[in-house]
């Protein structure tokens, strides 16, 4: 996720954070309802491509292309497996393919939403929706912490490799322990320093926070919302 932040701050196709939030909610609903054939499945397949199109518009067509191939491959493999392969192997393959077709679109959606939203934009959106400031700040801190967490995790993994204990001497418990203990320690100290810096810059002042960031709905927001909404309603109507 750290890389997501790095590369996509130059946003080309800018959606309002509230639009993204709505997309996320609709997608979560779609994931919950399971359909494998009929007209509803076609609607679902079309919906799958909404995040892919968004990612492509963001200037990452290679990610979109990779996903398309993966998605088609998984669908195809699922058909074959259902007819030809039985037993545990078949179950495993089915499970894997099912995970890909079912959850991958939502995962791409989440990744898209988080990596293209600046924290200030998010705070502004929360503010417009009149949600409590405490909630907005805690989610913002979480968003801020993801890239740090992955940075920390990477350097711990490197240290483990260097010490030759990447596999914890073969013990799974040790493997997890060696990863988590240093991670927790460094997160606690970073969290402490971060909050010290934030409070000395006035975070938590009991006045209404200003948001300099410009957000607002534009025609593309309406288009994206309309398409997703229509598809979702159609999907729910067809599948229930």
């Amino acid at each position: 996720m750290g890389n997501g932040y790095r590369k996509s701050l130059n946003i080309r196709f800018h959606l309002d954070p509230r639009t993204k939030l709505l997309l996320l909610i609709l997608f979560s609903v779609v994931v919950m309802i399971d359909v494998t054939d009929g007209p509803a499945y076609i609607v679902r397949a079309i919906m799958t491509y909404i995040p892919v199109v968004l990612v492509c518009l963001e200037g990452k067509p290679h990610v979109g292309a990779r996903f398309t191939v993966l998605f088609i491959l998984a669908t195809w493999l699922m058909e074959i497996t259902q007819e030809n392969i039985g037993g545990i192997a078949g179950m495993l393959i089915l499970f894997l393919c099912y995970m890909i077709t079912q959850f991958a679109p939502t995962m791409i959606m989440v990744w898209y939403c988080i990596s293209t939203t600046k924290i200030s934009e998010f705070m502004a959106a929360m503010n417009r929706m009149r949600l409590p400031q405490g909630l907005a700040i805690s989610i913002a801190v979480m968003m801020r912490f993801f890239p740090t967490l992955s940075e920390e995790y990477r350097s711990i993994r490197d240290a483990m490799r260097m010490r030759g204990i990447a596999f914890g001497g073969g013990k799974v418990t040790k493997m997890i322990e060696y990863r988590l203990v240093p991670l927790l320690f460094s997160c606690i100290s970073i969290g402490d320093e971060l909050s010290a810096a934030a409070v000395t810059r006035g975070l938590g002042t009991p006045v209404k926070r200003t948001n300099v960031c410009e957000i607002g709905f534009h025609s593309k927001d309406y288009v994206v919302i309309a398409v997703t909404l229509v598809l979702s309603i159609l999907y729910i109507y067809l599948s229930v």
């Binding site: 924290i119 968003m143 801020r144 890239p147 320093e193 971060l194 810059r201």
Partner: peptide, 25 residues
């Protein structure tokens, strides 16, 4: 502070410069 990594709150530079003034409204 000492550690440049852990004293910014935003993920973008613009947001960080205005972070303080935004906080005090």
């Amino acid at each position: 502070f000492q550690n440049p990594r852990s004293q910014f709150f935003s993920v973008d530079t613009d947001g960080e410069v205005v972070f303080g003034p935004e906080n005090i409204g």
